[in-house]
């Protein structure tokens, strides 16, 4: 298990396999147990190289995080959707349904 604060680099490409396309770097945190879907769980943040033009949903699919478990996506401290198109340096946080008080 990768401990908090350690960085793990993953690469997610689109269907074309990334040929001649630019890659962006984003940080991704999978919270409240969503990291269990990774081959090596990490509470994050992960550093992910992402093919330009991909959305949050594409990255999660590439990492085999089931879409039905995702409830909230926050990018750069703002609520966003799965269809948010990633930009270089984005800070992405993904949550299942959580609550408390």
């Amino acid at each position: 298990m990768v401990k908090t604060g350690e960085t793990k680099v993953l690469k997610v490409s689109g269907p074309e396999g990334g040929k001649r396309l630019r890659f962006l770097t984003v940080t991704l945190s999978l919270y409240a147990g969503l990291d269990r879907h990774l081959s090596s769980p990490a509470r994050g943040p992960l550093t992910v190289e992402v093919q330009q033009g991909l959305r949050v949903a594409d990255v999660l699919e590439g990492l085999r995080v089931p879409r039905e478990e995702v409830k909230v996506v926050i990018v750069n401290h703002r609520l966003a959707g799965l269809d948010h198109v990633l930009a270089d340096g984005d800070r992405v946080a993904v949550f299942p349904t959580v609550a408390g008080g």
Partner: peptide, 12 residues
């Protein structure tokens, strides 16, 4: 309930 720490932090 402390599961909320990260989501409130990410939301600023």
């Amino acid at each position: 309930t402390a599961v909320l720490i990260n989501i409130l932090n990410e939301a600023g």
